[in-house]
Amino acid sequence: MGLDTAKLRKRILGEHLPLLLCLLYFAALAPFAEGFATSYNLVNVFSAMLPLLVLATGQTLVMITAGIDLSATAVIAMASVVGAMIISGDVGWLAGNPLAVPIGIVAMLLVGAVVGAINGTLVAWFRMPPFIVTLTSLMFFSGLAIWSTQSKAISALPHSFLILGGNDWVTLAIVATVVGGIHILLTRSLYGRWIFAVGHNPKTALVSGVPVQKVLVGAYIAAGLIAAVAAILITSRMESGSPVHWQRNLLDVIGATVIGGTSLYGGKGKVLWTVYGALFLTLIDNSLNLLNLSHFTIMMVKGLVILAAAMLDVLRNRENG
């Protein structure tokens, strides 16, 4: 009996700790935050979580290779602007064309793939540090997006496009496909094994016949594509293409991934953990808004809560290690 509870405890603390934290946080705040536990609000929480979750899943992929992708929000800006320039009923190049929406979506995905390919090539073939490479991409493509629109938002997007991020069920289906796909990729496929091996030890991976450079480029392209999917959802939800959508949320993306338990040093990470991390951050944001704290208090409290969660993680690792 002792063994079983110990095993269960280890499993909960090792695998599902962030979920436990979410539940605990929810239970602790429900009596105080008015409307926290209402179905309207819970739908809100889940709907707000979806774009963050998609982005954090891409981040997880890159982080497992011991990299980081700071360019995610620049992909959103660039893809959002490019997509809207194509499909907008006002100023779109293909305004009124029945194929505008599919072409726009393909173009947005292409933007993500191109940015990812640039990042991956510089990291894998030129052996530049991922932090610098993606930071540069972030600056360049955010700047390009603002410059090409003169920081104006582009609206009048076709109705068929607005469904993608506006209807929670459609969004959920898209997100579940992406997140589930990456989960299967990481846990079941050859490519997933290679990603972990490269993250653990690229030298060993190379000697063992893993195409290290291709794996790295692939991971960054995948992350770029995933960020483009997020761009589609966000552009649709905000009913406008804009170079400033989500520009201040980059650290939420990285935060959700790391709080979930994915290691910044590579080789360790799970999509499920990232789901928990995204849920945790969204819950914090939502609850602090409900508590009617001032903006600056929210930022401070959020920092402290994340610190507390990270500290708990350190304690947990010390116990296990």
Binding site: F196, A197, T204, A205, V210
Partner: peptide, 16 residues
């Protein structure tokens, strides 16, 4: 440095 992924499991190393 070149033979093992030290943090990875025995099974993952063996099947790499």
């Amino acid at each position: 440095d070149e033979g093992l992924c030290a943090e990875a499991s025995i099974a993952d190393n063996m099947t790499l």
